[in-house]
Amino acid sequence: MSFTPDIRLFSCHYTSQQGCANEGKELRELGFPENIRLTRVPCTGKLEISTMLKAFEDGADAVYVVGCPVDSCHNVKGSQRAAKRVTAVCEMLQELDVEPERVRMYHLDRGLHPEFVDAGKEMNQDIEKIGPSPF
């Protein structure tokens, strides 16, 4: 069954800055999936576990987070904290007997790189394969 997943992306201000320029026009031109809804946060370290869970409650099929590289986070340890919280959500999904791949962390350099688009495409393809959220 093919379906268009509802994917929520939380990205830090710095990593997504250029991607958001011109209302995401450049992102779209690069083939960034349109079904991914981007929420910018000042720092991914500020992202709460409950916010990611809420996204699932609101119908997301997957949630992913893009923050700075581990060793060069603008806020020093923000993206490391985010990665820990993503892992916690991953474990919670497993407790609920739900595919842990539905939540993921990417550490990417600042600016609009092909990797940012690739991450979105990868997430989209994987979730298309896994199927709709069981919630």
Partner: peptide
């Protein structure tokens, strides 16, 4: 409060599932 918020969310998700 933070953990209760998480748990409430997990219970809602679990019940729904």
């Amino acid at each position: 409060e933070r953990e209760a918020e998480i748990l409430a969310s997990l219970i809602r998700l679990g019940m729904k599932k």
